[in-house]
Amino acid sequence: MMDTSTLLALVQDGVVNGAIYALLALALVLVFAVTRTIFIPVGEIVSFAALTYAGLDGKTTPPVLALTMGLGLVAFLRGAVKARGRALMILALETLGLPATVTAIVMAVVPMQLGIVANAAIAILCVAPLAPLLYRIAFAPLAEASVLVLLIASVGAHLALSGLGLLVFGPEGARGDAFSDAVLEMGPIILPGQAIWVLAATLATMIGLWAFFRFTLAGAALRATAINRRGARLVGIATDQAGLHAFWLAGLIAAVSGVLIAPLTTIYYDGGFLIGLKGFVAAIVGGLVSYPLAALAAIAVGILESFAAFQASAFKEVIVFAGIIPVLLWRSLRHVSVEDEE
């Protein structure tokens, strides 16, 4: 039997992890709704951001910048096959200019040792552009393909990126400094500062996203593309641009999650995959379309995981991932169709 304080600790642990899964679930729902891509490499973005944050020592340039610039070059070459004139200029700016600018800024800022929040920003800045670059390389050329083909491509991108992760970060894990050492005590609940940071940042991101979708034309254009692609094109929204924006947002969200999780646990180059998959479980509960459902499910996954870890630690992952199956089943029972699959 477990006592109340253990119970509370487990729930609290679950909620904190669940908040991070919730962020990832939002990113996944967003990308899927706009581009129909199930963005498996989201996990790599998480671990790369975490490792970059943990590796900032005020001296060395983050090694991930080589990856960002390299992918930028590949994306440029991939896009240059087709683009001409103004489009080529924009492509060059986004794929070559932007990573180079990020590198220059980061190299200038790192030696200043501006503190933990600046480090978090640096890590996010270095890693977030990977998502839109991946979109240009792997997914935009497949925009008309089926969800299944996009998923297989996504798995391929995950494989490649995780191999590159090993090359860039090496096999050792790392753990980042906590944002705050403060501890908040509320009766039986003891909240460490990092947990508060995670919850606050999650909440802020969600509110920010909501405001973006609700109040800006760019946000409305993304929603419109998700709801009806043809309708979006008919009002003049370029759907590949919308896809790029969705991947940008997803990259930012995933990088933020990575930085948040870095102080909570030791992260390895391939550790993000499992974290990302848990975000998936939640995203799928929401049918890959509903943000609130996905966020709630993410919290549930976090709590399930924390109890599973306590009761049967060896089978923690089995329990969490086998847990997705009934959810998938429930989803597909709810939407019965005999549509032809291609």
């Binding site: 199930i38 089926s146 969800v147 299944l148 998923l151 297989i152 499992l274 998959l277 998936f280 479980v281 799928i284 992952e317 089995v318 991932f321 086998a322 997705i324 199956i325 998938l328 089943l329 989803r331 597909s332 029972l333 169709s337 549509e339 699959e341």
Partner: peptide
């Protein structure tokens, strides 16, 4: 799993594989 359609099925097999 097989009642799942398309990409849900593929995701389901990923879950099975990891489990």
């Amino acid at each position: 799993t097989l009642r799942l359609s398309g990409h849900y099925l593929a995701l389901g097999t990923i879950a099975w594989s990891v489990s």
